[in-house]
Structures are given as C-alpha cells and as structure tokens.
Amino acid sequence: MVVKLENVTKTYKKGVRALDNLSFEVRDGEIFGLLGPNGSGKTTSINCLLGLLKYESGNIEVFGEPMSANRYDLKAEIGFVPQNVAVYTELTVYENVDYFCGLYVKEKEKRRRLVEEALNFVSLLEYRNVYPRKLSVGLLRRLNIACGIAHKPRLIIFDEPTVGVDPQTRNRVLEGIKRLNREGATVIYTSHYMEEVEQICDYIVIMDKGKVIAHGTNEELKASIRHGETIEVQLLEPKKEYLELFGKIHNVYSTYYKDDILVIKSEKGSTNIPNVLEILKDKGIKYGLLFSEIPTLNDVFLEITGKELRD
C-alpha cells in the first residue's frame, strides 16, 4: 500500500469539519482519483497526507510508514503538483525546475539530466530561459508540473492540475499523467471534473463533506447505482402531459424538463430508445435532437447525494 488514511478527522478553526473519519487506501502503481465538489475535503486530505496540516485524529501512512512533517525519507519519494502555480517569478523556467529538483537531488550531473528530462516531458525545453511572467497559463501549468515531477518521485500527487486551462492543455496534462504512471509512478489525482477522473483513474473515491461516499473502479461505481440510461429529447412543443406519458415506459423512474429538453431516466436494463421513438411517432410529437447517455460519475454522485457534482 502506497498511502493509507485511516479515520482522519480535521476541523478548521471556525468549526468547519473538513474531514470526517476519512479513510482510503492507494495501491502501488495505480492512478487513484479523488473526486468531489469544491469544498468536499480533497485538498485538505492531500495536505494532511503531505504532513502539512494538523488533524485531530486518525492515522496516515505513506509507503507503510507513519507520515509526519519530519519524515524526509518519505517526502523524498513524493512529488506534488499544487492547484495553483507555485514557481518563482524571479527565476527562469530552467532555474525553477532546477531549484525545486535540487531540494531532492543534490548530485549536480544527475540533477541536470533530471531537469532536462522534466522540461522535455512537459515540452518546455525551448522556454528554458524564459521567465514565468512571459508564459501563458497553459505553459505555466506545464512548468508547475515539471517542478513537481523532476526528481522522479514514486508517488505523485496532482491537486486539480487542470483548473482554468484550455482543453488542449488539459488533454496534454492528462496524457502526461498516464505516461508518468506507465513509467512506474503511483498517482493521486484530485479533481471535481468527473470526465477527467473517468478518463484516467484506475480507482476512484468520491468525497462529499469530508467523507467517502463511494469508491471503486469507474465501472464498479456506475454499476452500483440503479440508474442505467439518460435519454434527452429536444421537443419543439414541450407539454406537461408528456412527462406522464414517457414516465410509463418500462424501467423509467424519472422524467423532467431541462429547458425545452425532455429528460428520461431509466434503471439498468435494455435501452429505452426504441420505446421513446415509438411514442414520439405514435403521438406525432415533433422533436429535434434525441440522444442517449450511459451513466456517468455525476449520476453516481447525484444518486447518492441528491445533488450535482458541480453544484
């Protein structure tokens, strides 16, 4: 086990309970996703895990050893990419990576090689002599990552690394994380973007209000809920009576309007698209688009908490 949190409880000074008996484990070699809305306790749990935050109770182990602020041997094996860009504006791209890498790697030649590799990994070699102020948000994010991974840690923690970045940079970041994992690093990835977590994580813990509300693989989580399919139909003349009409279809458990779009939710089983199309045709209901969606992690979250992940 690379990381083990056991019944960790953390309350901030104003009485806000950020972690409530939180427990989870991260296995060697996996990409572990910590998913939850803003304020659910993801970053707090990471900061406790890094030995930065005080917590009232519980145990935290990293690589099988109790973690504390003075466990330099454990810290040496951890890389961290914080949510906000954490670099020195007074240093160039190369100097920033070299500085942070130097806190872990003392040998000059080895460090030089690692810094080059990290810059190459995030495709920043051509910006090596540029100061951060002159970099775009996307490039800064890549620099932020390079600073956290240059020393080739066994465990890399990414705390919402894609907040505020364009889709192209986001894809590049996610690809990079998968590559780091393929090269042997265990990854903890926190996000409130379910698509990202679904895309890269082997195992997912969903958090809300400082607690684990669900955990498992992507497939296991989706299989754990009764929801099976969401069909959305864009109606040209939405009528209230249609809600009851479509609600009578076998397995449908919820119908509602989202603007002019009729949303039909069905339990697991065979798809209801043929049934919906038949009613539309029989009743002569005019419609534009119709599409079907398989369950997402948002459905998992919605079913457990009654609210959307992005609420």
């Binding site: 030995g51 930065l52 041997d73």
Partner: peptide, 8 residues
C-alpha cells in the same frame, strides 16, 4: 508550500 514538503 512546495518547499515545505521537500525533504530539506
């Protein structure tokens, strides 16, 4: 924060 988590 980044410096604080380094083994230094």
């Amino acid at each position: 924060l980044r410096t604080a988590i380094a083994p230094e």
